[in-house]
């Protein structure tokens, strides 16, 4: 499984994301730039320039026509994927930490940071797909989540319900129309939730946390289905479709990284068995903590983005698909 090294960022990666077909990979970084790459060979297809600060988050719509990004420059931008043109810019009082499309690409949910007297806010925007340069400046819904600020979010299969992960380790379901917290699990994690990724059918999700664990939650009722306990703070967790694995990435804080580990590229993506909650393997390579992991929607490859500024794309070998580390029992996705 030889990795393809994507060198197109000058600073650390913040989020990477495959499009629906998996032929493209979007990456955003502290260098203010978003790149898009061909996932099969690592060739850079283009760059989306226009943000003036760390780009924290990116997502593409189901048809890969549109891409949305959120940045520390307090802006959220809508882009035309094929041309690199910025179609619309929303501006907020604080940084945009997370964005996500809904199932049909008609809505976007975003989290803005709590800072300078402004509360953390969650907004839902309707996306005008017929005239994408003409968007509504005002959100369709907006609310301030009570208690701990939200760090990550996504739409769920239930209309108007989103799932959020919080600084305190809480996971919650919100009705976006009323801003009401429908359900919560205050003790989902013991520290900041750093990532939240949905399963293929959106009926469950995985969260990662600085508390060194990752968990699978039912997106309908927040029931904790599985827990993966590691020995390092986690920055990202992803679900591998078609195989019973989840992928975890993290590492020590940049401050405490020793020169030895920096030199050796020791930072690893950890593969865990999804159902048995046991570690099954590690893939080394990054020269700093792994900030973000994404798995190809068909489960044929995965990519990791590091504090070291590199994206590494790995196409799985034949052996990965044949391996049955725990026997012949069929495990559903």
């Amino acid at each position: 499984m030889r990795p393809i090294l994507l060198q197109g960022h000058e600073r650390s990666l913040t989020q990477i994301k495959f499009n629906t077909d998996g032929d493209l990979l979007f990456s955003c970084s502290k260098d203010s730039v978003i790149n898009v790459w061909y996932s099969h060979n690592g060739e850079r297809l283009g760059t989306y320039g226009g943000h003036n600060g760390t780009v924290w988050t990116v997502d593409s719509d189901p048809s890969t026509d549109l891409m949305i990004s959120g940045s520390a420059d307090n802006m959220m931008k809508l882009w035309q994927v094929s041309t690199g043109k910025c179609l619309y810019t929303w501006e907020f009082p604080t940084a945009v930490k997370r964005v996500a499309f809904n199932e049909d690409g008609t809505q976007v949910v975003c989290i803005t940071e709590q800072r300078m007297g402004y509360q953390c806010a969650i907004r839902v925007f309707t996306i005008n797909r017929t005239e994408p340069t003409k968007q509504s400046k005002e959100p369709l819904h907006m609310f301030n989540p009570i208690g701990s600020k939200a760090t990550v979010c996504a739409f769920t299969p239930t209309p108007n319900v989103i799932i959020t992960g919080h600084e305190s380790g809480k996971v919650a379901l919100f009705n976006v129309k009323s801003g009401e917290e429908i359900e919560n699990n205050e003790r989902a994690h013991g520290d900041v939730i750093t990532d939240l990724q949905l399963s293929k059918d959106w009926t469950y999700c995985i969260t990662s946390s600085k508390d060194k664990s990752a968990r699978i939650h039912d997106t309908k009722n927040l029931m904790v289905i599985k827990t993966y306990t590691t020995e390092t703070p986690l920055n990202s967790a992803a679900i591998a479709p078609g195989r019973p694995y989840i992928l975890l990435g993290g590492g020590q804080e940049a401050m405490s990284v020793t020169t030895t580990s920096l030199r050796q590229g020791k930072f690893e993506t950890r593969f865990w068995h999804k159902v048995f909650e046991e570690e099954v393997g590690r893939v080394k390579g990054h020269f700093g903590p792994i900030n973000t992991i994404a798995v190809h929607p068909q489960g044929t490859a995965y990519a990791s983005g590091g504090e070291d500024g590199f994206v590494r794309v790995h196409h799985f070998d034949e052996s990965y698909f044949k391996a049955k580390p725990y026997g012949d029992i069929e495990i559903m996705d």
Partner: peptide, 16 residues
């Protein structure tokens, strides 16, 4: 392991 897989699959079938 068999029990864990059975539980997982039962939950998946219910949600699907």
């Amino acid at each position: 392991r068999k029990r864990l897989v059975d539980e997982w699959n039962a939950w998946r079938i219910m949600r699907q």
